[in-house]
Every structure is written in C-alpha cells, then in structure tokens.
Design a protein around this nucleic acid. Structure first.
Lengths: 126, 126
DNA sequence: TTCACTGCAAATCGTTTGCACTGGC
DNA sequence: GCCAGTGCAAACGATTTGCAGTGAA
C-alpha cells in the first residue's frame, strides 16, 4: 500500500472530530485545505479505513452513513429532536451477549446499542 | 383516511412474515395476487405504517430498509455469514437505560440492540 | 363531488465505479 | 516502469415524488 496524502487527511480528520461526520461533511472540510480532493476519494478512503478497522460506519435511520474514528467499543445516543449522534462513556456490557445466547442458538460475537431520547442541549431548550 | 386494499395487503403481509422483508420483496410477493400494485404504493404504505407505529423500519449496514410488523420491543440478531436478521425472544433490558443516564446528561427514552455473530444455520454448516 | 390513494415514470441523492492520469516506490 | 491511488464524471440503486386517473366516502 502506497502512502497517500488524501488518506492521511481523512484519517487525521476522523481522529480529530467526534462529530460523526458524513462523507460529504468530511469532503467539504478537507476541500478547504486540499482544493483538488474529490468526493470519490473520500469515500474510497473511508471504506478502506473501515475495512482496516481504523474507523466505524454508523447508520441511524436516515440512510446516510456517519463515520467515527473512535474505534474502541462504545455506545451511541441519537437525539430524537436535533438528530445528532453522541458518544456514550458508559462501560461495555459484555454480559448481555450471554443473556441473548440463552434464548438464541447461534454464536453471539458482539452487539451494538443505540440509545435515543432528548440530548442535553435540546432538553434545556424546552 | 380512506380504506385501501393495497394498504391492507401490506399490513397483512408484515403481520404474517417474520422474515424482515425489504420493500422490493414485499412488492414482488404482493404482485402475485395483486398484479397492478406498484412499488411506490408499497413504499408509501410502509412509511405510513411505520409512522402509525404498526411497523418498524430496520437498518443493518447494507443501506437497504427492512420492515418488521412485530412492533412490541424486541432485539435483533444479524448473521455475519448469511446476513439474515433474526428476532430474539430475550426480555427487554429496561435497566440499561439508567446505566446510560448515569454518564449522559440527556433524557434517555429507549434503546435498540443489534446482536451479531453466526446464526444456527451457518454454525452447523461449518 | 371530493379528495385520499393509486400506478407509472421520472427525479433524487448517497454511494460506487470506469477510466485516463498522477505520483509513490 | 509499475501499479496503487486520484480526480472526474457517469452509473447505480434504493427511495421519493409529480401527476393524471381511480375509487372510497
């Protein structure tokens, strides 16, 4: 694999933003300092980073992919009001895999939890 | 709201299939007995049922919406090998909402869990 | 008659891909 | 020089939408 300025920029962007950006957002921001970067390249590198395990791809119902450079297992919270996605700091609940395996005869390797409700910002605006 | 044969058919279909079908699958099946039904109508009615709370829309990474007519809270399992989605019978874990709210200053109203691993069928084929 | 709903086809839009070119090694 | 990676634009595919026609109330 060759070094690529664009790939480094995408990786660096994800490692320095906890906003769960879309590919388009990353593209728009990177364009400011790299005017020639293309959206296709951003997508190609995001998918590469996800394959490599250097990023996570998230979905939350609107069909647009969000990317997260914080890869150690953690949960997410989606605000019903403003639709923003937040990282939660709570510890990973390993034991619920065994709860699930009591009822299900497959091999459970992991789980993803999305919490939802009203975020702190929207809560104070009510 | 007017009665519609097509809407009843979509609702009935979801209530009688636990396969988490896509809109296209529902359309293909309904066409067998309703040759004139259109894909747009299937989509419109699915969205209506979801809004009304008579169905749930699920996503699991491939970007294609799945629909579930079984609306009481339950968890899902996605097979890494065959990509099928299964309903889990385990009880709903209300308490993890309070675990999350210890660390997060928003109002947590609910959560969704996706378990993943190897399903029973794929497990025996190994 | 009214207007919710339909079928159809075109539009939308996030994402992927083909291709010629560029740059890392 | 080789070929991974890029920029660009076209293609793709799931979903939505505009519109004229249909059918429930």
């Amino acid at each position: 694999m060759h070094y690529s300025k664009q790939r480094e920029a995408v990786k660096h962007y994800l490692q320095n933003h906890t906003t769960h950006p879309t590919a388009e957002m990353i593209y728009q921001d990177l364009k400011k300092t790299m005017p020639n970067i293309s959206l296709g390249t951003v997508y190609r590198n995001l998918n590469l980073l996800v394959e490599r395990g250097d990023a996570i791809k998230l979905d939350f119902g609107d069909g647009i992919d969000r990317f997260d450079g914080f890869t150690s297992p953690h949960y997410h919270f989606i605000c019903n009001k403003c639709n923003r996605l937040f990282d939660l700091k709570m510890k990973h609940l390993e034991h619920i895999n065994s709860l699930a395996s009591i009822e299900f005869d497959g091999e459970i390797e992991g789980h993803i939890i999305y919490f939802h409700g009203t975020c702190p910002d929207c809560k104070t605006q009510m």
